[in-house]
Amino acid sequence: MSIDSVPEMIDEFRQAAGRFASGVTVVTTRNGEHVYGVTATSFVSLSLNPLLVTVSINTASAILPDIDESGILAVNVLAREQEEVSRYFSTRGRGRSRERFEGIAAHVESTGAPIIDGALSWFDCRVHTTLEGGDHVILVGEVVAAGGSSGEPLLYWSGGYRELGRNDDPSGGDDGIEQFADALSVQLHMHGMTPADLLDAQYAVEPAAAALAARACTDELVAELQSLIDEAAEHHDDAERYNPVALEFHSRIGSMSGNAAIAASVRALSRPRYEVYSSQTNAERASRSTRKHQEIADAIRDHDEDRARALMLEHLGTIARGIA
């Protein structure tokens, strides 16, 4: 019986696989003047003679052509304090850079593939074998150099990041809400959302989030929001760099609302937002969105709830007309 004919089995498979705790790695390569990195959890050591490791990458990942051309890769096992590194490389459009990763310190050892500073361990490899595995490609790397440092690993389990010895109740506290929202965001992305569905959801929660953020904001939170705006403004002509930062603006407002349900709802839309909006980006639209983001941030800073709500509604209306 084909699994394609039993959709519920796919959901059961995902739930079962999600109960397997794994370490978190970033697979990197260098191809000419470009470096590329992507987060992966399906890594295992394979052989001592010869020294081999394997990691599985989705066939749709843009890193695969670069690995195929360069013939090199490095697997970086992340330490528990490197959750933000994992999020950076799991955000679509952020992994490929010229010469170096923006904001991520790295160095080279033997092959030239980037080794991320602070990684718990790393394996510098030449490609030994490439195997097809359904919707993934299994990369077998022959290790030419390896190393690491002391510390504890970053773990991934049941849709969220974990640490050894931590109380991992996914339903409790702000960390639990964020982990739930991220897991739901992945599911929404995998199952697909139409632009109309996405906009309906945004209209339902984001104006309220903006108003609550204006009520609850602090100088520190406003500074974080302003930092996102300033970073986005530097990349109007580079959609790959602009989109992740600009779209994080919306999730950050949800977090600033102080309401766990609204924060989770807004963050859960993060991947569908990227999927729908990234293909619509050009320099003119990016510049226009940044100006509107600035107006919204100014209203939040001034604790003007009505204006923050109205400006977010106006911004979503502009987005809707652009998509139409």
Rank of each mutant, 00 (worst) to 15 (best):
F13C: 10
F13W: 14
F13P: 01
Q15T: 11
G18Y: 05
A21G: 15
S22R: 13
V24T: 08
V26A: 04
V27R: 07
V27S: 07
G32S: 12
Y36I: 09
L52Y: 12
V53L: 15
T54I: 15
N58T: 07
A60E: 10
P65C: 09
I67H: 06
E69L: 13
L73E: 02
L73Q: 07
V77S: 06
E83A: 14
R87K: 13
T91R: 10
G93I: 10
R94F: 09
E102R: 15
G103N: 12
A105L: 13
V108F: 12
I115S: 04
A119M: 01
F123R: 10
D124A: 11
V127I: 15
H128V: 03
E132I: 05
G133E: 07
D135V: 11
V140Y: 08
G141W: 07
G147Y: 06
S150L: 12
S150C: 03
L154C: 07
L154V: 06
L154R: 08
Y156I: 05
Y161D: 08
R162N: 07
R162E: 12
R162F: 02
E163R: 15
G165E: 05
N167Y: 08
G173W: 11
D174Q: 10
G176H: 04
I177P: 00
D182S: 07
Q187I: 08
L188H: 04
L188C: 10
G192L: 11
T194Q: 06
P195K: 09
L198A: 04
L199E: 06
A201H: 13
Y203E: 12
A209N: 01
A216I: 00
C217A: 14
E220N: 11
L221P: 00
A223M: 08
S227V: 01
D230G: 05
A239T: 13
E240D: 15
R241Y: 09
F249T: 04
H250V: 15
N259L: 04
N259M: 02
N259Y: 01
A260F: 04
A261L: 12
V266P: 02
R267P: 02
R267C: 03
A268I: 03
A268E: 02
L269N: 02
L269Q: 06
L269V: 04
R273D: 04
Y277T: 03
T281Q: 14
T281N: 11
A283Y: 05
R285P: 01
S289D: 13
K292I: 10
Q294G: 15
A299I: 04
I300S: 00
R301L: 06
H303I: 01
D304L: 00
E305N: 03
R309W: 08
L311F: 04
I319M: 13
R321E: 13
G322A: 11
